[in-house]
Computed example of a mutant assay.
Amino acid sequence: MTAKNKITVKRNAQPKEKPATDQLAFGTVFTDHMFVMDYTEGTGWHDARIVPYEPFMLDPAAIVLHYGQTVFEGLKAYVTDDKEVVLFRPDENMKRLNRSNERLCMPNFDEELMLDALKELVSLDKEWIPDREGTSLYIRPFIFATQPYLGVAPSKTYRLMIILSPVGAYYKEGMNPVKIAVESEFVRAAVGGTGSAKTAGNYAGAMKAQEVAEAAGYSQVLWLDAKEHKYIEEVGAMNVFFKINGEVITPSLNGSILEGITRKSVIELLQSWGFPVTERKVSIQEIFDANAAGTLEEAFGTGTAAVISPMGELSWGDEKCEINGNQIGELSLKLYETITGIQTGRVEDPFNWVVKVD
């Protein structure tokens, strides 16, 4: 019996009205179905099922509510110009989700089964996938501890779910360069912590800095390392790249930085183009010095939601630097058009990144 045969399906008898594609926000509307699977210690993962999207009951003492034992992922489905439904590197998301599980003392799952479940769910709700430029179907797999227990210990029971949401652009600015505040007080994560895992606490702890930045008129914060407040780590919830004097530089993975799938794709693309790209420590002082010397050419964030997000201005204490005249850089635009082109079938995919949904 194949993994796909193990998934039961219950169709929604009352489908919801679909939103207008020109009015989509990010993560506010959800499709008709969701995937659910449970874990019990001694039994393993069981009862894989697709059911109508609906609220569910959770014990008030569930470990996730008290100790935050939860992980998640984010990826997208697209409709190509040939009307095929495709996913972008979903195997990488499944691998990363299992890595997050390991860090949070949560059980690994069968990645083949999860990919089958994801494809079947997307296929069932494929009419929800918007085809307007810049839109997609956002896919959110997540796992959380369900055992009712107030002792500090890994749960003995878990639930794994996948929900879907038709989305528009993540940032209202779109591909326009954004203003970024360098964060010198708060930290996102420390080496040895959970920064390399995609877990809820990392994002909850980042909200205060984001709130302060937005109140000051900035779109996101640029995170510095927890020890010296000197080295750049991420920008908002994205990885970050700088083009200095013809070379692309990104902070090396150090245990506190999330290994992004878009980050990996950008590096592989640049290497395939013969472009010099380096992973290493990058200090905020180096960036401001490069700007003063006229060698800072571009800066951009990378992530599933925005793909490429150009940075137009950095604010660090009393200092400010404008990047590339606050215009979209040539390389940033080429990376965006190439990745989104591969995702939608407009650009050839020599890497076999795109996976078709049957």
Rank of each mutant, 00 (worst) to 15 (best):
R140H: 12
E173D: 15
G174Y: 13
K264I: 08
D47K: 15
E120A: 08
D32H: 08
L124R: 04
F72I: 12
K227R: 14
V187L: 07
G68S: 12
L269R: 07
N291T: 01
I323G: 02
A117P: 10
R11D: 03
P350R: 07
K227G: 10
V307A: 05
F186P: 01
V152I: 15
Q23A: 14
K6N: 15
E228A: 13
G195M: 07
L224H: 06
L269E: 07
F275C: 13
C105R: 03
K334W: 02
P52K: 04
E313C: 11
F72K: 09
F56D: 13
P310M: 14
G201Y: 02
L331E: 02
D59V: 09
Y203Q: 06
Y149P: 01
E92V: 05
T31H: 06
H33D: 12
Y138V: 02
Y158G: 04
Y203H: 08
P19H: 04
P141Q: 14
R346K: 15
G195V: 12
L104Q: 03
S332V: 00
A62W: 06
T338R: 07
D289E: 14
L269S: 05
P55S: 14
E127D: 15
D110V: 00
G42P: 10
A25N: 15
I232E: 02
T40R: 09
L314Y: 11
D81K: 15
A197W: 01
Y53K: 00
E133R: 11
G44Q: 13
S184D: 11
T340I: 15
A25D: 13
H229T: 09
M1G: 12
G294I: 11
F30E: 03
G192P: 11
V277K: 01
V85R: 00
E102D: 08
D125F: 01
S252Y: 11
K172S: 14
H66E: 08
I261Q: 07
V71K: 00
I257L: 03
I249S: 02
K243T: 09
M57D: 15
D131V: 04
T80M: 11
E211G: 12
L222D: 03
G134Q: 06
E228T: 14
A204L: 13
V240C: 10
M207P: 13
D82E: 15
F275H: 12
D82P: 06
M238S: 02
S100C: 03
K95T: 10
F275I: 06
T344M: 02
G236E: 01
E17T: 14
F242K: 00
V354E: 01
S252A: 12
Y78S: 06
G260N: 10
Y53V: 00
E322H: 08
S252W: 06
L137I: 05
P251Y: 05
P310K: 12
